[in-house]
Amino acid sequence: MSTPSPDLSEAASAAAEDFFVQIYEFFELIITRFFKNGYASIAQMSGKRWTKVIGSVVFYLIIRPYIEKLFKWMHDRDRRKEKEKRDKERAQFGKVKMTANSLRPGADDKGKVLGEVENTDDELEDEEDIMAAASGVPEWNKMARRRQKNYIKSVKKDQRAEDLSRDQIMELLDWSEDEVVDEKTKKEL
């Protein structure tokens, strides 16, 4: 009762072959029509049509620089409008960028750091009060300036201690070379 079914591999190969033949014929038709029609359109062209083609090309070559100028002008106009808009926004908000040095009293364009002071503290006391009141930025008080001076002095003392030679340190400590050697031998034992 079972009927023999046709071989599936033969049916699949026949379908694939038919598919690729149709694709090949389609592309062949397109290529032949392109060349045939392209040749016929050039070979059978009248003088009137040649005049139109040549006139179009010449017109394009003549008008192209003006087209480029038009697009450049449009681009520049847009950029100018953007720049004016940005400048207007900056003008509304005042100065956009402000440096930290501009917030300090007595800061000028040289950009001094807070620790850099040309005059002594005694000369600056009156000026600091005036500048602090004018700028609205609170200035260091006397205690803070004293702490800063003491810190700088201690740093300088530490640097002087580093600069001393080993003999000078031994002399300051009242140690002799013999005592140091004796202590080393005690540790080794």
Rank of each mutant, 00 (worst) to 15 (best):
T3S: 11
S9Y: 12
A11Y: 09
A11H: 10
A12H: 05
A15Q: 15
E17D: 14
E17P: 00
F19S: 12
F19W: 11
Q22N: 11
Q22P: 04
E28P: 00
E28S: 08
I31P: 00
F35V: 04
G38Y: 12
S41N: 05
I42R: 02
Q44P: 06
K48E: 00
R49E: 03
W50L: 00
F59G: 00
Y60K: 00
Y60W: 01
K69D: 01
H75P: 00
R79Y: 08
K81R: 13
E82I: 08
K83E: 15
E84F: 15
E84I: 13
D87N: 14
A91G: 07
Q92A: 11
V96C: 11
K97D: 10
M98V: 10
A100G: 06
G111F: 05
K112E: 00
V113P: 02
V113E: 03
L114G: 04
V117Y: 10
E123H: 07
L124N: 06
L124G: 01
E127N: 03
E127M: 05
E128C: 03
I130T: 06
I130A: 12
I130S: 09
A133S: 12
A133N: 06
S135P: 01
N141T: 05
M143P: 01
A144M: 15
R145L: 01
Q148I: 04
Q148D: 05
Q148F: 14
K149F: 11
K149R: 15
K149V: 06
Y151I: 07
S154F: 11
K157W: 15
K157T: 13
K157N: 15
D158F: 13
A161Y: 13
E162Y: 14
L164Q: 09
L164Y: 08
Q168S: 10
L172S: 03
L173E: 06
D174F: 05
D174G: 02
E177D: 12
D178F: 08
D178E: 11
E179P: 01
E179G: 00
K184D: 14
K186E: 10
K187F: 05
K187V: 06
L189C: 02
